[in-house]
Design a protein around this nucleic acid. Structure first.
Length: 472
RNA sequence: GGUCGGAUGGCCGAGAGGCGAGGCUCAGGACUGCAAAUCCUGCCACACGGGUUCAAAUCCCGUUCCGACCUCCA
């Protein structure tokens, strides 16, 4: 069913329209990944989650998806950090690249098809600059820099809808080498002590924008379907990518998708405090699957106002769904076969309307629970399958091995110990010694284990990944 | 100054002219030894002022407030 009815919002024309891939059955996506100069915060990872959901939905819709997410491993901030931390720049880049990889893995963001690093594509960047210089779109003033001549472009700033002359001119740039203050650097001439690579125009290092044009071209060709990134990349980064690539004669991306921010106190995160909303910190409070559920639950184009209360609420909501799937799995005595309901499909096809999809999941959970009460295993299998299928698209399938927190061996031991306690509790209940049975229950609950008495006997589940530690 | 978004119940969050998405919280009920889990019921909101319409949260005009981008940004 590669002829899906998917509609997507395109920043380029600010409308939602039907998605038609350039090559039937295939989709190429380029997502601007991280500049690895600090640990990832949830804003970074939201972008990863949002586009991971897009990717999973495309795949589920029958498309063969090539998903590229780059790593910017050379830039001013990395260089500054290297000086500050007194380690080589490449050690800074690797340290934070690993931090990002860990965060992506913890939130079940699938590894991209290819994950190119900027420094691994210098020759492709030089080739692109050569094309641009040869056709008069770019110039090398002789100091090692290479600039794009924005006045030479047929079109510029089409994504952000701005006028070149309305832009506040950059103050920092050494205007001496630029023909126009709005020209931007493709390549930055080497400064003493900084890493550099040789080019026909002198030694230097890549400008930020050039990297993505070169890497997208390398892995996806001259034209591809979707280019994604955070809303703040629209200008200048994506405008400049478009400028470079189209000036080279490439078709470049057909659809531009931008995720909104995670905000705190109504403001973009990076503007507010240097805060503690790093992924690793939050994973001490909630499980990765719950953090993902939270970040993925809002529509990707809506601002997500972060609060610990909202995060906790999302966790509670998710556990309800997870609890249902666990119950269903035990009752059905086997793996739940995932399926996609019509409601969920319609929601996702409407520019990834996850919130509407969530409503359909809630409905299926309710129907499934009702089926359990009615001992209707056939209906239960249907509803549980739809819930699991939807969760898989959202990357929140609790049965996904990615989220298994304990090894099989230790789970068996725990299971044995809990069962022992439960047997004693049942014995106490049988002789109406409720103070003893409740004491056992309270003790188990204190360990973060939830007990449910079902018609077929008590069952237990770990309610949190970590011992309860209430804070915030 | 230019460009672009946003304002929905106690809270989070959809929707985009007419049946009040969904979740969380709270209250009541069923079930339970008591709980938990689950189900049922209840809680009738769309920044403000005008207008259009049989009908407006949704369309139009105006206002207020909040935010983003304008060469570091997810």
């Amino acid at each position: 069913m590669s002829t899906s009815d998917l509609h997507l919002y395109n920043t380029a024309d600010r409308t939602v329209s039907k998605f038609t891939p350039l090559v039937p059955g295939k989709v190429g996506i380029y997502l601007c990944g991280a500049t690895v100069q600090a640990p990832p915060h949830i804003g970074h990872i939201r972008s990863g989650v949002n586009f991971d959901i897009l990717r999973r939905w495309l795949a589920a819709s029958g498309y063969d998806v090539t998903f590229i997410r780059n790593v910017t491993d050379i830039d001013d901030k990395i260089l500054h950090k290297a000086v500050h931390e007194e380690i080589p720049w490449w050690a800074v880049a690797m340290k934070y690249e690993r931090a990002f990889s860990d965060a992506y893995a913890a939130l079940n963001v699938l590894p991209p098809t290819y994950e190119p690093r900027a420094t691994g594509h210098i020759s492709q960047m030089i080739q692109l600059m050569q094309i641009l210089i040869d056709n008069g779109s770019a110039y090398a003033p002789g100091n090692g820099d290479v600039y794009l001549n924005v006045r030479s472009l047929k079109e510029y700033l089409t994504l952000s809808g701005q006028k070149l002359d309305d832009l506040q001119p950059a103050e920092d740039a050494d205007l001496t080498f630029k023909k126009d203050p709005r020209d931007f650097a493709l390549w930055k001439g080497a400064k003493p002590g900084d890493p550099s690579w040789p080019t026909p125009w002198g030694d230097g290092r890549p400008g930020w924008h050039l990297e993505c044009s070169a890497m997208a071209h390398t892995y996806l060709g001259e034209s591809f379907d979707i280019h994604g990134g955070g809303l703040d990349l629209v200008f200048p980064h994506h405008e400049n990518e478009i400028a470079q690539s189209t000036a080279a004669g490439w078709g470049f991306s057909k659809i531009w998708m931008h995720n909104a921010w995670v905000t705190t106190s109504g403001e973009k995160m990076s503007k507010s405090l240097g805060n503690s909303l790093q992924v690793q910190e939050l994973l001490k409070k909630v499980r990765g699957i719950e953090l993902r559920w939270y970040l993925g639950s809002a529509h990707y184009r809506s601002m997500l106002e972060f609060s610990f209360e909202a995060l906790e609420e999302a966790s509670v909501n998710f556990r309800r769904i997870e609890g249902f799937l666990n119950r269903a799995s035990e009752i059905l005595g086997g793996e739940i076969i995932p399926s996609i309901s019509a409601e969920f499909s319609i929601a996702m096809n409407d520019d990834l309307a996850v919130p509407a999809g969530l409503a359909s999941i809630s409905e299926e959970v309710k129907l499934g629970n009702t089926a359990i009460s009615a001992n209707d295993d056939k209906a239960l299998a249907v509803h549980a399958g739809r819930v699991r299928g939807a969760l898989q698209i959202l990357g929140c399938d609790p049965f996904d091995p990615v989220f298994a927190s304990t090894s099989g061996a230790s789970t068996e031991i725990i299971d044995g110990l809990i069962s022992l306690a439960l047997e004693q509790r049942e014995a106490a209940r049988a002789r109406k010694d409720f103070s003893t049975s409740d004491s056992i229950r309270d003790h188990i609950a204190g360990l973060g284990i939830t007990l449910e008495d079902t018609p077929s006997g008590p069952r237990w589940s770990i309610s949190t990944a970590l011992p309860k530690e209430k804070g915030n």
